[in-house]
Amino acid sequence: MIVQISEHLRASAPVALARLAYHYPELSFALVDEVIEVLGENFDEAVIRREVSYALYRQHLFVQSLPLRAALLATLSHP
């Protein structure tokens, strides 16, 4: 199965794929150019496609929120 990924999510793919490999050890995930290739047997493509999208967006939002988290922590750490 091939899952297309948006250009703005590509940087999040390696971490997302590591998380997916942990959750789905029976499947193989690989980043190939601008797609994620999923290999395995007997899996629900709709479910895995949703999980890949969720993992990508989750990591993307986490990285985007890091500066905000750092600023908040700095504000709370200094009286």
Rank of each mutant, 00 (worst) to 15 (best):
E37P: 05
G40N: 02
A55V: 02
L39N: 15
A55N: 04
V3H: 13
Q64K: 10
L66S: 03
S53D: 13
L20Y: 01
L9T: 05
A55S: 05
V3N: 11
A21I: 01
L56K: 05
L39K: 15
I36M: 01
V63Q: 07
E7T: 11
D44T: 06
P67A: 02
A74D: 14
A70T: 11
N42K: 13
A46I: 09
F43G: 07
E41W: 07
A46R: 14
L72K: 13
L27S: 05
Q59C: 03
N42M: 08
L56M: 10
S6Q: 11
L76W: 06
E41G: 10
D44K: 05
V32W: 05
E7H: 10
L20R: 02
A16L: 03
V32H: 10
V15I: 09
L73S: 13
I5L: 10
L17P: 01
G40D: 03
F43N: 04
A46T: 14
E41F: 12
H8L: 05
A18T: 01
P67Y: 05
S77A: 15
F29V: 04
Y24A: 03
A11L: 09
H23A: 05
V47C: 09
L9V: 02
E34P: 01
H23I: 07
S6E: 08
L61K: 04
T75Y: 15
G40E: 03
D44Y: 11
L31E: 08
H60W: 00
Q4H: 13
R49Y: 07
P67S: 02
A74T: 15
S12Y: 04
A70R: 14
Y54S: 09
Y57L: 14
F43I: 08
S6H: 09
D33E: 10
Q4M: 12
Y54N: 11
S53R: 06
D33W: 03
Q64T: 03
L76V: 09
L20G: 01
V52P: 01
V15S: 06
E45R: 15
A74R: 15
E51T: 06
L20W: 01
S77M: 14
A11P: 02
S77E: 15
L72I: 10
L9P: 01
